[in-house]
Structure formats: structure tokens, C-alpha cells
Write a protein that binds this DNA or RNA. Structure first.
Length: 572
RNA sequence: CGGGGUGUAGCGCAGUCUGGCUAGCGCACCUGCCUUGGGAGCAGGGGGUCGGAGGUUCGAAUCCUCUCACCCCGACCA
């Protein structure tokens, strides 16, 4: 491609509404432009990278035996009503009516639609297993779209759905997808972790998320520094601590702590570490008050508590409720004498003589002991794992904390949708059986964005070759006036093109500085600089964007090197 | 949905508090000259419903009311 004939509108300055680096760089590099909140144009460079990811995904899905289809973006309400999600999904589902007043929505995911295909077409166990996938634009009317392609409302997603005769066959399909996902993200050149995850509103029995490691990631994940265990913090199990050695309970003591509400304030005021304090949280589970007890330096994991209680909603109680439940202003709650349901974290069971609120404004209690001072029956793992915690799976391992961007998610769905939509088959005995499903998503645009989060410097993007919009750029010095430069550049361009290298020839009549800056910004991995100075000796410069390594080579050598580097990087 | 903020040229911003000359600056863009190994220089030029509607006023980018869009924090979320 000749740069002068192409369309790469780069920006020298960073648009003020772009917060994360990938969003800033994708705008500056002319890859995307915003059309509305969370809705973007894909300009040529952005589209090329997206297509690269799509093709890797497609190859690996096909390799794993999945079959590509394309389902509609507009889907009828009936299917969603049948699965029950029409009422459950909420405002994220963009709904509208057609001219005949029929109800529809833009597909945010396609379990219903694909299950409908399968229930109509699959009759026999002989037709299973089946795995159907599509690469398609989805729409979710996010409450707060942000970070460019990272969290848009409209986005390109690969979604696959597996159908099996039973649970163990479904496990095999799941494992195939898990392995395919590893290959996909490895081929994209991403540094990632596959972690155990909560299933959220999709439902189902178990799932893994594929997390690209990046500081800007919206998710917290933990992994063991010793074994393979890794999980989203939402899901990560805290290791059950053994009860502390016998400590003589000391007499209960009430102390004044005027105006000291937070754990930090009380800890400093009474000069006790937060780890021997118990924090008492008042929550509303489906509008019923519930109290959660945690060690002072631990955080509540709302998902664990929500799953434990089996409630639909869980939120922090407003001040009035706290006052009603504890008889004190927020900040002075404690478990002693409370009449509502109390759930204590497992760690709290082992705590002796701890400090907690007295259920009296401006007062705390010292030397509280649960078994003596209050009637707590429920103990459960309801806290977030923190840095350095012991691994729940191996001896001696410690948990490390990371930030991650979720680029892929695989779920075992079980029979949730097949049951609701009556997707069944006849087994070898002629008996009707329910189909077992799995679903598997990859955010395509998000993968490109997260790649940029991981691979950039102060000059711009540093694409890995497999998803770079072009493999190589030829930056020419005075292409317009120097005939030798023009001839050599054109020749290199033709040679690379015919070798199958995707090459961008910067033939613009611009000063070299502009071309170098643009080349760095758009992140093309390999750059050949053709200038009169080196051409006198028949040489050109080959520069690697990632390392900054620069070599002075004969024209033919440079061409060979580029070909070799591209071939090596695209090896499957 | 709650809290905060911003809308002035393609991008980045000043001007708004304290109403008043023809609405400015940098970058980008166009023409010419010059220049060509890291976003050059000189000269000339084009581009604005000051987010929109209504109001106050002799006079509104500036004050008031309503409204729209976008951004940030929170809640929520695959």
C-alpha cells in the first residue's frame, strides 16, 4: 500500500476525552474515531488489526472443530421471553419495535438464537457434538461506556456455543475451547492468564476468563507463585486459616472512640493493628438486612456473599437502616447483641479478644470473643483474597495480585438454555434427552486495545507482527526529488509485496521527521529507511520498532531479513 | 440513576467570574518560496449558528431558564 493513496489520519495531540493509553493511541494513530458514546468507526488501520485477530480466531476455532455461522444482530423478543432473559437482562438490552409493533432487541449475546437453531435442526445423538460460532457485532447498552474499544456499547465479538449429549461430553468440548483460546492469545502475542471466574448473569456451572495483564485492567486477578492456581478476585478462594492457638479470653471492655468511624481511625486511636479488629458491615440482601463480619484489614467479596445468600440484589445499607439495626451511627456497628442474620468470614472464627463497634455511637468494644459474646452461626469465605495470602491449592504458595483485561471467557452452561428452550435429542435408546451447552466469547476489538495497553512506548504503538496492520513500512527520505531513492524504494516495495509481506510505502512528500514519527505512532514492527546517504553504498537501514535495534544492510539483505522475520512471527 | 465537570475552527486551548471595539492563540489545512535522516523556516490565505432553544439588556461566548451532548467518580456489568 502506498501511504499517499491510503487513509491514515494521525493526530499530533491527544484528544482530551481519551483516558487510557490504548484509546489515546488508537485515536492518534488514526485507527478509530468516535461516532457516539461507546460507538466507533473502524478506520483502515484499525480494521486491518481487527481482521488479523478475527482470522487467528477463525483459524483456531476451525482447527478445534467449531463451525462458523452468522446469526442476526436483530433478534425477536419471543426468544428472550422464552429463556426468561427478556425480563431479567435489564436496560443493557437495547429494545425497540418494528413497524408492525413487534418487539425486538439488538443481540448482546446469542444463546437464545443459537439454541433455537439447534432445537429445530438437531434430533439425534448422532448429530452431536456440535460447536457453532460467529464473529459479529454485538450491542450492549452499557451504563457507562469508556476506554475506547475496551468497553464500547457496540463491539465485535466471537461467540461460540457447544452442544453435547451429556455433562462429561460437554467437559471435553469446554476443554477444546480452553486450549484453542490459549493458542489464539499466544498467537496474538499477548501476555495473559487464564483464571477461574464467577459465571455472572450468563449462568452455568463453571468458567474461566482469559485476562490480558495490564495496569489499566478493570479486573483484579490473583495467581499462585508456586502452582497453576489463578482466579478472578471475585471468585478466588481464600485459604481457610486454622483457629489461632488457645488464648485466654479477657473481660469485655467498652472504650470511647469519639468520631472514630473507619477501621484506620479506630486502629490509630486505640493503637491496635487493623488485623485484630473486626469490621461489621450492614447490607441489604433483597431488602433484608444482613450483617457481614470481616477482619479489619480484609475486604468483603460481595459476589461470594451474594452466592452464599442466594439473593438477587445485595447492597450496602443506607444510614437509616444501619441506625435501625445497630442503634448507632454508621462506623460503630459490632456483632454483640445484634438481632439480624450475621455471616462471619472464616478468618473471624479464629480471632480472639478483638476490637469492634459497640452498637453505640462513639463507642467500641475491646476483647470481644464471638463464642462468648454473640451468637454467630454462619461462617463462610466471604472476603477478597489479598496479596501474599497462602494458596488454597498448594502448600507454601503465596498469592500474587494482578490487574487484567478480560478478552475471553469460556462457560460451562449446563442445561440452563437448552431446558428453557427445550433443545433435546434422542439417545441410542430412543429416549429424549436434554442437550448440554457451553458458550465461549472473545472480544475482538478489546483484544487489539489490550495488545496496545501491553505494547507501547512514549512514541506510540508497538504492534507484534501477527496483529500489526502492516508488517513493514518503508520510510523514504526525499522520495519526491531523489530518483535513486524512489527507484530503490519502489523495488524493495515490489519485492516485499510479491513475497507476501504486508508493506506500507511512505511515498508522501513530507520531511523525514514526520514520516518517522508517524511510523512509530502507528506501530509498524519493521521499518526500512531508504535515503540517498546510505544508498550510495547500496545500503538501507532496517529498524525494529520493539527493540529499537537498527542495522545497516544491503538492499537484498534487508528484504531477506524482513521476509524471514515475518515468516518466523507468523508460524502457527 | 446519584455526585462533579466540560461544550468557543479538524485537534489542543484562552476569553466567561466583572456583558461592550472586527472572537483570539498553537497545531493542522490551502498557495508560494525554501528545506529534506526525528513532527523545520518565511510570506500570504481559508475555516466559527461560541452545543441548542428561549429570556434579560441599547448590547450576550459572557447573565438567567430550559434542553442536548460528552467526560470523570460512584452504583452496575460479559
Amino acid at each position: 500500500m502506498r501511504y499517499s493513496q491510503y487513509f491514515i489520519p494521525t493526530l499530533k495531540e491527544t484528544p482530551s476525552d481519551a483516558e487510557v493509553i490504548s484509546h489515546q493511541l488508537m485515536l492518534r494513530a488514526g485507527m478509530i474515531r468516535k461516532v457516539a458514546a461507546g460507538i466507533y468507526d473502524y478506520l483502515p488501520l484499525g480494521l486491518r488489526s481487527i481482521r488479523k485477530v478475527e482470522n487467528i480466531v477463525r483459524e483456531e476455532m476451525n482447527r478445534a472443530g467449531a463451525i462458523e455461522i452468522l446469526m442476526p444482530m436483530v433478534t425477536p423478543a419471543e426468544l428472550w421471553q422464552e429463556s426468561g432473559r427478556w425480563d431479567f437482562y435489564g436496560k443493557e438490552l437495547l429494545r425497540f419495535r418494528d413497524r408492525k409493533d413487534g418487539e425486538f432487541c439488538l443481540g448482546p449475546t446469542h444463546e437464545e438464537v443459537v439454541t433455537d437453531i439447534v432445537r429445530r435442526e438437531v434430533r439425534s445423538y448422532r448429530q452431536l457434538p456440535l460447536n457453532l460460532y460467529q464473529i459479529q457485532t454485538k450491542f450492549r447498552d452499557e451504563i457507562r461506556p469508556r476506554f475506547g474499544l475496551m468497553r464500547g456499547r457496540e463491539f465485535i465479538m466471537k461467540d461460540a456455543y457447544s452442544f453435547d449429549v451429556d455433562s462429561s461430553a460437554a467437559d471435553i468440548s469446554y476443554d477444546k475451547m480452553y486450549q484453542a483460546y490459549r493458542r489464539i492469545f499466544e498467537r496474538c502475542g499477548l501476555r495473559f492468564r487464564a483464571v477461574e471466574a464467577d459465571t455472572g448473569s450468563i449462568g452455568g456451572t463453571s468458567s474461566h476468563e482469559f485476562m490480558v495483564l495490564a495496569e489499566s485492567g478493570e479486573d483484579a486477578i490473583v495467581s499462585c507463585n508456586c502452582c497453576d492456581y489463578a482466579a478472578n478476585v471475585e471468585k478466588a478462594e481464600a485459604r481457610i486459616s486454622e483457629v489461632t492457638a488457645h488464648v485466654e479470653p479477657r473481660p469485655l471492655e467498652k472504650v470511647a472512640t469519639p468520631g472514630k468511624k473507619s477501621i484506620e481511625e479506630v486502629s490509630a486511636f486505640l493503637d491496635v493493628p487493623s488485623s485484630i479488629m473486626v469490621k461489621t458491615l450492614v447490607l441489604l440482601a433483597d431488602d433484608e438486612p444482613v450483617v457481614a463480619l470481616l477482619r479489619g484489614d480484609h475486604d468483603l467479596n460481595e459476589i461470594k456473599l451474594k452466592n452464599l445468600l442466594g439473593c438477587e440484589t445485595l447492597e450496602m445499607a443506607p444510614d437509616e437502616i444501619v441506625l435501625k439495626v445497630t442503634g448507632a451511627q454508621p462506623g460503630f456497628a459490632g456483632p454483640v447483641g445484634l438481632a439480624v442474620k450475621i455471616v462471619a468470614d472464616l478468618v473471624v472464627r479464629g480471632m480472639r479478644n478483638f476490637v469492634t463497634g459497640a452498637n453505640e455511637t462513639d463507642m467500641h468494644l475491646k476483647n470481644v470473643n464471638l463464642e462468648r459474646d454473640c451468637a454467630v452461626k454462619a461462617f463462610a469465605d466471604i472476603r477478597n483474597v489479598s496479596q501474599g495470602d497462602p494458596c488454597p491449592r498448594c502448600e507454601g504458595g503465596a498469592m500474587e495480585l494482578w490487574r487484567g483485561i478480560e478478552v475471553g471467557h469460556v462457560f460451562k452452561l449446563g442445561t440452563k438454555y437448552s431446558q428453557a428452550l427445550k433443545a433435546t435429542y434422542l439417545d441410542a435408546d430412543g429416549k429424549e434427552q436434554i442437550i448440554f451447552m457451553g458458550c465461549y466469547g472473545i472480544g475482538v476489538g478489546r483484544s487489539v486495545a489490550s495488545c496496545i495497553e501491553q505494547n507501547h512506548d512514549e512514541n506510540g504503538i508497538i504492534f507484534p507482527i501477527p496483529i500489526a496492520p502492516f508488517h513493514c513500512i518503508i520510510s523514504t527520505v526525499n522520495y519526491a526529488k531523489e530518483e535513486e531513492v524512489r527507484k530503490a524504494s519502489d523495488a524493495i516495495y515490489e519485492q516485499l509485496l510479491s513475497a507476501g509481506v504486508e508493506v506500507l510505502l511512505d511515498d508522501r512528500d513530507e520531511r523525514p521527521g514526520i514520516k518517522f514519527k508517524d511510523a512509530d505512532l502507528i506501530g509498524i514492527p519493521l521499518r526500512i529507511v531508504v535515503g540517498a546517504k546510505n544508498l550510495v553504498e547500496g545500503k538501507v537501514e532496517l529498524k525494529h520498532r520493539a527493540t529499537g535495534e537498527m542495522e545497516l544492510l544491503l538492499v537484498a539483505e534487508a528484504v531477506e531479513k524482513v521476509k524471514a522475520a515475518v515468516a518466523e512471527a507468523l508460524k502457527k
